[in-house]
Design a protein around this nucleic acid. Structure first.
Lengths: 166, 166
DNA sequence: CGAACTCGGACAACTTCTGTCCGAGACTCT
DNA sequence: AGAGTCTCGGACAGAAGTTGTCCGAGTTCG
């Protein structure tokens, strides 16, 4: 039971992209979070494949959110990066062995698979209840509005536009 | 987000052990489920380490549940086999990069970590709500009382006691 | 028309999980 | 009491997934 580490990066990137109005390159996001740019690109590609962000190529290219942050849930990001298959996959071992249950009696999943599926549903429901907009609002509540504003300024700032300040 | 495959085996074994009154060897459980006996032994060792089952060595040895099935939850088995660490581990990337949040402002987990922790709690709560006894009762409801009774007979039967019937 | 910058997928290295084996310990029978 | 047989327990390879990196295709701007 382990979640891919890239999920954390992707979620942070989505929150950051909330503040941006122009496309943000993957290299810029990697510099902001101090992570491997090459690997972060892979996660952003996954988000692009899932339709959560749009990629713009060319000189002023980068990534932009496709919809409003209120319409993107944490579950969307997790499913895009980590895959949408459930954590528990039933092997149907009840149909194996000397006392195997006949296939005709297996009209519904076995009790174990049902319990695990229920837990998985609860997990997904909790992730679906929180949107990227909620996360951005929580950041404002925790650190004040200056935090996200500072990120927006840094993204549009000169730290990569060509002129270095410091 | 993937759960160790041995969890399914361990859960089935716990349900089977509900019907047994004497110690059941790992090899017998492996034969019943038609799985690798060597690998199933590893899962049972994990259950033993977690205190869910007791191992009896010697000629008539095997595994026995330590408590009543009502007192063993699915979460106990999952934690014993797959580990009890949460699926999401926060790397604290908010404290990295050029706009790093100062450590003194990080009194509570970041919003992303909080949301993931909430989902994890919901998942665990769902697994904690179902006990091995509940699973055994569901098996009775699905396939009738003859299923578990047949397993009990097979466990105590001659298919390994020394005299072969067929 | 040339050049620079971007994304996208293909290529290794590592950690984790899966599967297997043999040795230590305990009970039973002689 | 002593040998034998059966059991668990941990140590040993193989396979798979994840982590990390690289270079090529496409697009926009000068």
């Amino acid at each position: 039971m382990k979640l891919s580490g890239g999920v954390e990066w992707a979620l942070h990137c989505c929150v950051v992209l909330t503040t941006a109005t122009e496309p943000v390159p993957a290299a810029r996001l990697a510099e902001l979070h101090d992570v491997s740019g090459s690997y972060l690109a892979k996660q952003l590609q996954a988000l692009s494949r899932a339709g959560l962000v749009t990629s713009v190529q060319g000189k002023a290219g980068g990534y932009v959110l496709t919809r409003a942050p209120e319409l993107i849930t944490i579950l969307d990001v997790v499913a895009a990066v980590d895959g949408d298959q459930p954590a528990f996959v039933c092997t149907e071992i009840r149909q194996r062995g000397p006392l195997a249950t006949p296939a005709e009696a297996c009209t519904r999943p076995c009790p174990i698979a049902r319990a695990m599926a229920g837990a998985d549903a609860a997990w997904r429901a909790a992730l679906r209840a929180v949107s990227i907009a909620d996360l951005a609002r929580d950041v404002d509540d925790d650190y004040g509005p200056t935090a996200l504003a500072g990120i927006r300024d840094w993204l549009d700032g000169p730290n990569g536009g060509g002129t270095a300040t410091a």
